[in-house]
Structures are given as C-alpha cells and as structure tokens.
C-alpha cells in the first residue's frame, strides 16, 4: 500500500492522497492520471491490467488500486 501511495504522490505531488477518502470524487486523479498510473503499475509489477478493469471505481483509493494490482498478478 505504501508503494502505491508513493507512486500516486509522484504522479500528482501537489495532493495529499492520505487525506482523501475518494481520489476520483475529490479530484485527485483524472482519466489521464489513471492512464499514467496504469502504465507505471504495469511496468513496476510486470502485469497487464485488463481494459475492462480500468474504471474510476478501481482507482478511488490506495486499497482499491492495491486490490487491482493483486487481481492482475493472479
């Protein structure tokens, strides 16, 4: 989870992700940030994230992103 937060802070350093309960609703991540994040996660964890899983709900919290990575690792 810490690794995920570190990546998020690298993408949008101006935001405090730990203080947000929903990254999408709070405007911390937009659709292009999600594209950037998917690209970083795929390279870092050597995974392929299913296109159907690239929906805002799966990027709303560090936990949902962590679960998405684990799902695609498996």
């Amino acid at each position: 989870m810490e690794e995920i937060l570190k990546i998020l802070e690298e993408i949008r350093p101006e935001f405090d992700f730990k203080a947000s309960s929903n990254f999408i609703e709070d405007g911390l991540l937009d659709s292009f940030d999600i594209v950037t994040l998917v690209n970083i996660l795929e390279e870092k964890y050597q995974i392929k994230i299913d296109g159907l899983d690239i929906i805002p709900e799966n990027f709303s919290s560090a936990e949902s992103i962590f679960n998405l990575v684990n799902k695609n690792k498996n």
Partner: peptide
C-alpha cells in the same frame, strides 16, 4: 470544466473514460 480543462458549448467534448470503457466492452 472543474477538472482543469477549459471549453465552450461550441466545442467538441469526448468523455474519455466512457469511450474507453465502451471500446473495451
């Protein structure tokens, strides 16, 4: 538009997430 983008009603807009999900599905 509240997300950092500026456009008018005269302009074209694509809802990127909706179109992406439509194509994948």
């Amino acid at each position: 538009q509240g997300d950092g983008n500026f456009r008018a009603l005269d302009n074209m807009h694509m809802d990127g997430s909706a179109v992406f999900n439509f194509v994948q599905a």
